[in-house]
Amino acid sequence: MSSPKLDPVESRALPSQVVKADEPILVAAAQNGDISAFETLVGRYERKIFRLTQNITQNREDAEDAMQEAFLKAFEHLREFQGNSRFYTWLVRIAVNQALMKLRKRRPNVVSLDEEVDTGEDMMPREVEDWGPSPEQRYEQTELSGILSNVIGELDPPFRVVFQLRDIEELSTEETAEALGLSVPAVKSRLLRARLKLRQKLNQYFRQGANS
């Protein structure tokens, strides 16, 4: 992975499509009133859901409230979960809605996620530098988490939310579009911009010699 030579992109199953073996059993038990089964599901996903609400709201208090409300809402509506998607994907949709409500409340002037975003911007990358092998390993885990959290927080919400769902939670493009009420082309367009912007932001940390 050290050379700039491009390896073919490996095909991979999206984790949103990979169900932990016991998840359907836990969900079915929780739907039948087994509270400890629901608590197990909460324990399994609380860290990821908090990261999601934190990345979307960029506010710790809102992120905590959105996470709590998401789990409570999931519990209340558990019987409505049909098992057509992975439980986690269903939970992510609930958490995204809660986080977006917080974001809109705190920042009413924020660009609506539904609006067309500017497409006139030149997307051609200007900083083209190799990162060398495993650039992320030059940083301690907590330092890396901080860097990732900061750079994603610098994205405008329409880009941040799409990237969060598509590339961090690994929902499919169609699932992301459905969760956000966007068209598939809109998701693709925002995703491309988000990826390029994040690449550019990470370049300052990961280009060769950046941390030496």
């Binding site: 030579k5 491009l6 992109v9 609380e46 860290r47 908090f50 885990q141 988490s145 961090i168 990470l202």
Partner: peptide, 24 residues
């Protein structure tokens, strides 16, 4: 240049995707 952009964009996705959420 395009090879580097494609490679570093791919790595950007992987770094985010593989990052462990911090403990609550």
């Amino acid at each position: 240049d395009c090879r580097i952009v494609v490679d570093t964009t791919k790595r950007t996705i992987e770094i985010f995707c593989n990052s462990e959420p911090a403990p609550l």
